[in-house]
Simulated scan of single mutants.
Amino acid sequence: MFIALVLFPLTAHAVTPGERLADPALEARARAITTELRCLVCQNQSIDDSDASLAKDLRVLVREKLKEGMSDAQVREYIHARYGDFVLLRPPVKPETALLWAAPLIALLAGAAAIWMAARRRASIVAAPAKALSEEERARLKTLGVSDLERPKS
């Protein structure tokens, strides 16, 4: 419980009271839109969560467009047209963003392949039989004062 109380302020939204709309329905629509838009400064936060001045400007712009009577889709399209796919936290699937959408799967497959290859390599090393020492290696060991270290046959 204590941890939840300590961490609660970290989850607070960056929307200031001055930005909020008087109409609760419009404010709810604005919040729904701003949670879908990426902060262009922070990049891993929505503009609803960001304290950056550009995020504040975008939140105000969204609210202004809603007050002008635009639909949610029109506001999203307006912002998208001005800032491109990058402003969307969930960019559309199209040829230009295919790598972005495929990257997690590619990373997962690459990790699985690396683990599989390491396991095969380790199994082949463990399974390889020990070779007997050559006469030259035995002579070298004798000069070093080490007795024959050949493994017993199993």
Rank of each mutant, 00 (worst) to 15 (best):
V6F: 14
R138Y: 09
A127T: 03
S124D: 04
K131H: 06
A113S: 12
A4S: 05
P9A: 10
F8E: 02
N44C: 07
G111H: 01
G84A: 06
K153T: 10
A30K: 05
L61G: 05
L26M: 11
G18A: 14
P17T: 13
M1H: 07
K142V: 08
Y78N: 12
V41R: 10
D85R: 07
P24T: 03
V6E: 02
S50P: 06
Q45M: 10
W116R: 08
A128I: 00
Q74W: 13
P9N: 12
I3F: 12
V41W: 00
F86M: 05
E136G: 08
A128S: 11
A28K: 12
V41Q: 00
D48H: 15
D48G: 13
W101V: 03
A114Y: 04
V60P: 00
A32L: 01
D49Y: 11
T143E: 15
L141Q: 07
F2M: 02
G69Y: 10
K67Y: 02
T143I: 06
C39F: 03
P129M: 11
V126N: 07
A14R: 01
L109G: 12
R90N: 07
V62E: 03
A128V: 00
R82Y: 01
A103S: 02
T34S: 15
E137G: 06
L89Y: 10
L100K: 06
A103M: 14
A110C: 12
G111S: 14
A4I: 07
L149F: 09
K65H: 12
I125F: 13
V126Y: 04
L100N: 03
A103C: 01
E150A: 04
R38N: 09
A130I: 02
A4L: 09
T97C: 08
R122T: 11
L88C: 06
V41E: 10
G18E: 12
D49I: 01
Q45W: 03
K153F: 12
L66W: 06
G84Q: 06
A128R: 15
A12Y: 14
M70D: 08
K153R: 12
L89V: 09
A113L: 15
R76W: 00
S147T: 11
P24H: 05
L5P: 05
R138L: 15
V75M: 07
L100V: 03
A132V: 13
R29Y: 00
R82A: 11
V126C: 04
V62M: 04
F86L: 12
A114S: 07
D48T: 06
L108R: 05
D148Q: 04
A52T: 05
I47T: 01
A55K: 02
A107E: 02
R63M: 08
L37S: 02
L149P: 14
L10V: 07
E96Q: 13
R138I: 14
R122E: 14
W116T: 02
A30S: 13
D72I: 10
I125E: 14
P17R: 15
L58Q: 13
A112V: 15
A118R: 11
E150L: 00
L21R: 11
R63S: 04
S147V: 04
S71H: 05
P129W: 04
R38M: 08
K94F: 00
P129F: 00
E96C: 03
Y78W: 04
A28G: 04
D57A: 14
R59L: 03
Y78K: 10
K65C: 04
